[in-house]
Design a protein around this nucleic acid. Sequence first.
DNA 1: AACGGAACCTGAAAGC
DNA 2: TGCTTTCAGGTTCCGT
Length: 253
Amino acid sequence: MPELPEVEVVRRELLKLRGGRIQRIEANDARIVDQRVGIVGRRVREVGRRGKWLRLALDGAIVFSHLGMTGDWIVTTHDAPPLRFERVRIDVEKRSARYTDPRRFGRFVTAKDDIDAWRELGPDPLLDGIDEAHVLGVMKKRRRTVKEVLMDQTLLAGVGNILAIEALFEARVDPRRSSRSVTKREVHAIARALRSIIRRTIAHDERLVAGKRSRSPFRIYGRAKDPCPRCGGKLRQIVLGGRGTTFCTSCQV
DNA sequence: AACGGAACCTGAAAGC
DNA sequence: TGCTTTCAGGTTCCGT
C-alpha cells in the first residue's frame, strides 16, 4: 500500500480522531507494537505525517505508525467487529480506529518524545518542497544508482519504489545510471515529476476511498509487458537494490 | 564503509 | 481444477 500519497490519505482518515480522548487501546502483535508509555486518557491533538511515518501528537505522549507494505488505518465505530488482519485498535469517544496489516511489516510505537526513525527522516516533498540543489549535491556524493538514492528516506522522505519508477520515467532518466551522472537539469525534471505524481496519486486515492472509480496515475509501474506509453518502445523489468524496477529501454537515457 | 542478498510475513496472481 | 511458484508500494540485518 503505502508510499507518501497513500500515507497522506490515511492521515486524513485519522484526522477523525482529532480532539478525542483515548479510552482504550488494544494491541496484541508484539512484532508490530512497542508501547513505551500509556496513552489511555490522553487527548489527540494533531495528526501528522512525514514521509511514510504517521505521528499522532497526544497530551504528553506521541504515537507513531509506519504502515510497512500492507498496513492501513480505518476509522469506524466501537461496535464494528474486528477487521480481517486487525492488529491494533484505538478507541476514542465516538470512534474506533483499526490498524490492519496482513504481512506485519508495519510498526506502532507509543513514546514520550520523537523516536529516532522519525528524526532521521529527510524533508517531505509535500510539506517542505524539494530542494533541488540539495538533491543534486547528494546525488553527486553517492555511489549508487539514481533510483536507489532517490528512495533514500534521509534524502526525501516518502519516495518509495513506485514513485521512483514513475518519476524517473517522467523525467526520462534511466534508473540504472549512477547518481553521480545526474545533471542539474535532470534533477529539476525528477523533482517536477515527483510533485506531479504525488499530487495525482493523492487525488486518485481519495477518489478510491470515496468509492469512486479512478484511473491509475501510474504509467509504467506493473506494466512491464506493455509497450512504452510515450514512445512505443520496449519496457523492461529488472531488479535494482532488491526492488523490482520498470523502465523504457528506448526513451529513458 | 559499501554492497548484494536474505530475512521478516502473508496473500494474490500467474504459471504449470 | 489444483498445486506450485513468483511477486508485492518497506525496512533491517548479515556476511563479504
